[in-house]
């Protein structure tokens, strides 16, 4: 079953110096539990696309279906991870992971139990009374992920979610997050400018054109069943995927 279905989505907005068409006729779908990476030339509106799916921006045309139902406004089925962890420094880890539930007024015995479970599973339970600045960058990112998962999303949008981390932390955190998300059976959509990361995590890579963006290609990525983002980097197929996507992207950069 397709968890997310985007049909003919388009977005235009008014700027000081005229109307800008960010993208047109975007159509794709993501099956339940799959991971779709989105890459595209810089400035093509990749992040705007995520904001649109999340309902943070009003789309000007087309439809977005989540779990078979058309989405209107900010959908409670969607979780969103931004570039930085955005933890609130004045709250403990526990109060940070409850933040989403608090905003949605969804704190109950059941959600508290689920959140505790998440913290336990991912090794953060002992740190629940600490403050964010007492944790390492990788741990903070995990806290941010648990904050998002605690709200029980069916679809997770990752907006360059690891780009603020240094390279080494990034590799381990990517592995971590991938494991967590696959275990929780969340459907994922990740925007990134990092092609290796897109290949390492994705079940498919969607390539966007330059602005106004359209879908150039949805490229399936196939590795062994038990792959991890780190292990598949040494698979011979990895570099094939990389060079294919790189070629597609460069074409667009050159036209520009």
């Amino acid at each position: 079953m397709d968890m997310l279905r985007v049909k003919n989505a388009g977005f235009r907005y008014q700027a000081e110096n005229g109307e800008v068409e960010a993208f047109r006729n975007i159509t794709f779908s993501v099956p339940q539990g799959q991971f779709l990476s989105i890459v595209g030339p810089s400035g093509c509106g990749k992040s705007t696309l995520l904001s649109l799916i999340a309902g943070l921006l009003p789309r000007t045309s087309g439809t977005v279906e989540i779990g078979g139902e058309e989405a209107k406004g900010i959908s409670p089925h969607i979780g969103y991870m931004l570039q930085r962890d955005n933890l609130l420094e004045w709250r403990t880890i526990w109060d940070n992971v409850l933040f989403g539930l608090e905003i949605r007024r969804a704190i109950s015995d059941e959600t508290i139990k689920r959140t505790e479970e998440l913290l336990r599973t991912y090794g953060l339970y002992e740190f629940r009374n600490k403050y964010p600045r007492q944790l390492s960058g990788g741990m903070r990112q995990r806290v941010a992920l648990i904050r998002t998962l605690a709200a029980g999303p069916d679809i997770l949008l990752l907006d360059e979610a690891f780009s603020a981390l240094d390279f080494q932390t990034r590799l381990t955190v990517t592995d971590d997050v991938y494991r967590i998300l696959k275990a929780e059976k969340v459907t994922m959509l990740m925007v990134t400018h990092d092609i290796p990361e897109a290949v390492a995590m994705g079940d498919a890579v969607l390539i966007l054109s330059a602005r106004p963006a359209y879908v150039k290609e949805i490229y399936p990525i196939v590795f062994d069943e038990d792959r991890s983002p780190l292990s598949c980097r040494s698979d011979p197929r990895f570099s094939q995927y990389f060079s294919h996507i790189w070629k597609e992207l460069r074409e667009d950069e050159e036209v520009k």
Binding site: I74, L82, E102, R104
Partner: peptide, 24 residues
């Protein structure tokens, strides 16, 4: 970006004020 984070959970302007802008 922190405000955007709150908005992804559907935070109202009042919630953004009380949970983020004032304590920050």
């Amino acid at each position: 970006e922190i405000i955007k984070m709150a908005q992804t959970f559907g935070a109202s302007r009042k919630q953004v004020l009380s949970t983020i802008v004032l304590p920050a």
